[in-house]
């Protein structure tokens, strides 16, 4: 691996200062489960590594009824899917956090890192998008919020400007009563795999009728895709087999997959419709018992 300097700031302002000083040559480090691999492969060569795991704002996870869930960017997956508020109110996010890597990876990897890494196959991103999450970004000048669906602009590229740091994620409170979420992915192996397709959905239900749906797709385009038409179609409908099939079909039309080592475009498109159906059913089942 190439040489670099290591910093472990204890405050947000210190971290921002370091990022400002080192500019584009700096890279924040959370769990390192993507960053260290990429550095070892020579794909990334930052000369300064800013370990942000000791900053309170990045390690905090909290929920309140008005603002919803706050998730520090460096909180490891295990603390996400073991969190009672996440399990109870954002099961789709728990699904995704529980699927990433292995136990070993989930003890280090964070959802902030998953987002900043900018992979189209990132498991947590469709789940976050379906839940309407926003990213809180701090820079030398100011702070800003960016909707998660607009955060990644191309594979490996995000809206973060030089010197900016992803501090946390804010997920709005779920609507009262009959709402829920789910994330499903398809992988050839049962665990320890990268999504060939990932589908995150969030539903608000009134009995068997869908009041509102959001569907986000992963690994079927250069960035995550919102299946707008499918979601719109479901609004006001009963989630019967025909509606689920049609929503799946609409979602598969929204996908723009490619052939790669992990799957063919044709296969991925088909799987989008399958997983959309299954994820909608899973979320609807959860909403029923909510």
């Amino acid at each position: 691996m190439h040489e670099f300097s290591y910093y472990a700031p204890r405050s947000l302002s210190e971290a921002i200062g370091l990022l400002a000083t080192h500019g584009a040559k700096a890279r924040p480090l959370c769990g390192g489960t993507d960053l260290i691999i990429q550095m070892r492969a020579g794909a990334l060569r930052p000369t300064s590594i800013i370990d942000v795991k000791q900053i309170r704002e990045l390690r905090r996870i909290s929920f309140d009824g008005t603002t919803g869930l706050y998730l520090g960017a460096a909180v490891p997956c295990v603390e996400v899917y073991e969190n009672a508020a996440v399990l109870g109110r954002y099961p789709g996010l728990a699904d995704a956090a529980r699927l990433i890597g292995s136990v070993q990876i989930r003890h280090r990897a964070s959802l902030g890192g998953n987002l900043v890494n900018g992979s189209p196959a990132a498991d947590s991103v469709p789940a976050l998008i379906a839940l309407g999450a926003t990213a809180l970004v701090a820079g030398p000048e100011d702070e800003r919020t960016v909707p998660v669906e607009g955060f990644v602009v191309a594979p490996g590229r995000t809206v973060l400007r030089s010197g900016e740091l992803l501090v946390g994620l804010q997920v709005p409170p779920p609507p009262p009563a009959k709402s829920s979420s789910a994330y499903l992915r398809f992988t050839p192996r049962n665990e320890m795999d990268i999504a060939v397709v990932g589908v995150g959905v969030a539903l608000v239900m009134d009995g068997e009728r869908c009041l509102k749906a959001q569907i986000a797709l992963g690994a079927v385009g250069p960035t995550q895709i919102i299946a707008q038409e499918a979601a719109a179609y479901l609004t006001g409908r009963r989630l019967d087999q025909a509606a689920l099939d049609h929503a799946g079909w609409l979602a598969s039309r929204a996908a723009t997959p490619i052939d790669d080592a992990r799957g063919t475009a044709e296969f991925r498109r088909h799987i989008v419709s399958v997983l959309t159906r299954r994820a909608l059913l899973a979320a609807a089942d959860r909403a029923r018992v909510n």
């Binding site: 290591y6 472990a8 136990v103 003890h107």
Partner: peptide
């Protein structure tokens, strides 16, 4: 096991 949690030591820096 690092601070009570199992991790891959190949993905942790010594300085961390």
């Amino acid at each position: 096991i690092l601070d009570g949690r199992v991790v891959c030591s190949c993905l942790v820096l010594g300085v961390e």
